[in-house]
Nucleic acid binder design. Structure first.
Length: 583
RNA sequence: GCGCCUGUAGCUCAGCUGGAUAGAGCAACGGACUUCUAAUCCGUAGGCCGCAGGUUCGAAUCCUGCCAGGCGCGCCA
């Protein structure tokens, strides 16, 4: 590509200039300037060199320009402002990307791991086997809207990472162990008794939702009530617990499928306990000398009336950067959730992943340090897992907050929202913001088909291109031009209107946008990128007619909009949003 | 009290591993449909980038301290 050629040319010039300072060579980075009259690319490389060479940035930039041998595509380069090198390219050199995009289609922007051409590509060596864990909602009820945000972001991130050549496994950790499962089983059992005509009192700790009644009713159709009644309580709780988990997971999977998300792997917490992995892990930590029996101080910052000092098995997480040591076993000797979670992450490591990425809700933020501390102790690796904390979703309708109380059973499920506004609107809207920002999601606005709702804006651009191409077909234009791939003969040099240039520059930037999204684990970048591209297209559309009497110009513009359509399509497919041909 | 996240236009947000004149959408105001889809576009107006210091040739961006909001802080998961 042109950009790499420019960077290499500058790099070479710098090597000549920096012979006396071989170690202090800063990397050459080219930017697309915001101002059009600042050229097609700008390099700020002279500025950081000012200190090293003890000369002014302008002087250094002048030296670079004297030394550099530009590739053919460069028309002009000049020094500007405090020491930028602004580079302007020859007109046709960038437009040729349009043909490349059409030729490569869905592959445009992606790294082709198998291609021979990329044998010496950096990506070949940096390809990672990544485990991406997300959602992991408890199997005690339906997914709520907050889970949905994590789900959508995780799925898109997986797509982004795969697109740049990584090997990604999507994983869901099922918290199917612990006290909550007993609560679930008891809640279901109570409802079963109720369905059998017994009078029941639902304790405050029980799950109140309607779905519990549904599960209870389903179990009654497959299991004999009196048989269950006569079972020992332990066995009954265990059985109903398993059935309820299965029912909830089926519901969760269906909810996920409704927004187009499928996991490669579901990992059960129970399996860790049953396989003895949690005990084995604690033993290993003991052997490493990072476990002791001790007493934790009372928690800070909230009223604790019933605090009693208790001896527990503790992990020395303070040795690995945590504030306080963390318990591995409860008072009754059973393993904590934390212990199982360490075993889980250790298991991921043993499965051979180069990298683990976890997507958690913000309410688990306090948990990051201790898991990373444990991984540091176990596998001597820092910042594993790499945790993305997704901030809360504030659900509103017409600007008024929607009550979200799980306890009262009034929380809005993800499924309800998807059914109301559609999967595309949910997915796109959840991905237009950085995960660090809280997200305001308005049910009414998500249904509006206007400029406030970015999903329709982008899809409309795609559909509009479809309409133009249909029009072109009706006008009798050669089908080869509209849907074929033999476009060598088309002259693109007349695409020099400002809107056309902007579109070309924009589609050219797609691979970089994707790469940046992958590097920084920020899939929202793909969403903002295509919003920008769609805006440029709508703007182009209003000022320039594609199908006209000028056959040569019509041909060039058809190539342009086909390329734009392809890039919008590729971006939307990363986000898991549909790209309709007509709306 | 401590930890993490956030604070940018009236509202919702981009821009944050330092670069040129801080950008979008909504709302406001004024325009554009006999034309390839107006679910769109064009224009006007709107900014102590939370506050105060510091580092730097250069700070919305990095550092420190404060202020405000969100999340969390025993053997719940």
């Amino acid at each position: 590509m042109v950009k790499q050629a420019l960077e290499q040319a500058l790099q070479k010039a710098l090597q000549t200039l920096l012979v006396d300072h071989p170690d202090s060579m800063p990397p050459v980075v080219l930017n697309r300037p915001k101002q059009k009259d600042h050229g097609d690319y700008a390099a700020n490389i002279a500025m950081p060199l000012a200190r090293i060479l003890k000369r002014s940035p302008q002087q250094i930039a002048a030296s670079i320009l004297e030394t550099v041998i530009w590739p053919d595509a460069v028309e002009h380069a000049e020094i500007a402002g405090p020491g930028f090198i602004n580079i302007r390219l020859k007109q046709a050199s960038e437009a040729s990307v349009l043909k490349t995009i059409i030729a490569t289609g869905a592959q445009y922007g992606r790294v082709d791991v198998n291609s021979q051409a990329s044998a010496n590509d950096l990506h070949k060596n940096s390809q990672q086997k990544i485990n991406l864990e997300f959602v992991s909602a408890n199997p005690t009820g339906p997914m709520h809207v907050g889970h949905g945000r994590g789900a959508v972001v995780g799925d898109a991130l997986a797509n982004v990472l795969i697109a740049v050549g990584h090997d990604v496994q999507r994983e869901y950790y099922i918290n199917d162990a612990g006290a909550q499962i007993a609560v679930l089983a008891n809640s279901v059992w109570l409802r079963m008794q109720e369905l059998q005509g017994e009078k029941i009192v639902l304790p405050a700790a029980a799950y109140p939702g309607e779905y519990i009644i549904q599960i209870a009713s389903d179990i009654l159709t497959t299991h004999d009530y009196h048989g269950l009644l006569e079972m020992p309580a332990d066995a009954r709780v265990k059985l109903i617990g398993q059935l309820s988990i299965a029912a909830n997971m089926a519901m969760i999977r269906a909810d996920l499928a409704a927004i187009g998300i499928n996991f490669d792997h579901y990992f059960s917490e129970q399996s860790l306990h049953q396989g003895g992995h949690v005990t084995a892990l604690i033993e290993q930590l003991q052997a490493d000398g990072v476990v002791y029996t001790g007493t934790l101080p009372p928690p800070k910052g909230k009223e604790v009336s019933d605090y009693k000092p208790v001896e527990q098995l503790l992990f020395r997480s303070t040795e690995f950067g945590d504030d306080v040591d963390r318990p591995l076993a409860k008072q009754d000797g059973t393993a904590t959730y934390f212990a199982a979670d360490i075993a889980y992450h250790f298991d991921k490591h043993q499965r051979g992943f180069d990298r683990m990425i976890d997507i958690w809700g913000a309410d688990h933020g306090g948990y990051v340090t201790r898991v990373q501390a444990a991984m540091k102790a176990l596998i001597q690796r820092d910042s594993q897992p790499d945790v993305m904390l997704v901030q809360m979703v504030n659900l509103t309708r017409d600007g008024k907050p929607v009550k979200m109380s799980k306890r009262a059973g009034t929380f809005v499920t993800l499924r309800e929202v998807v059914d109301e506004v559609g999967a595309d609107a949910v997915r796109f809207n959840f991905m237009t913001r950085r995960v660090e920002s809280q997200l305001d999601f308005d049910l009414q606005a998500a249904k509006e088909k206007n400029n406030e709702n970015p999903v329709y804006y982008v899809q409309y651009a795609h559909a509009r291109i479809g309409a133009i191409l249909r029009k072109a077909r009706d006008a009798g234009i050669d089908a080869q031009l509209i849907e074929g791939f033999d476009l060598e003969a088309i002259d693109l040099s007349m695409l020099n209107a400002a809107e056309e240039q902007a579109l070309i520059a924009n589609v050219l930037a797609y691979p970089d946008a994707l790469k940046k999204a992958a590097e920084r684990l920020e899939p929202y970048r793909v969403a903002t990128y295509i919003m920008r591209l769609a805006a440029d297209f709508h703007s182009f559309y209003h000022k320039n007619k594609v199908v006209s009497d000028d056959a040569a110009l019509t041909a060039a513009r058809i190539v342009l909009i086909r390329a734009v359509r392809q890039v919008i399509n590729n971006g939307l497919s990363i986000l898991g949003v549909s790209a309709p041909d007509r709306m």
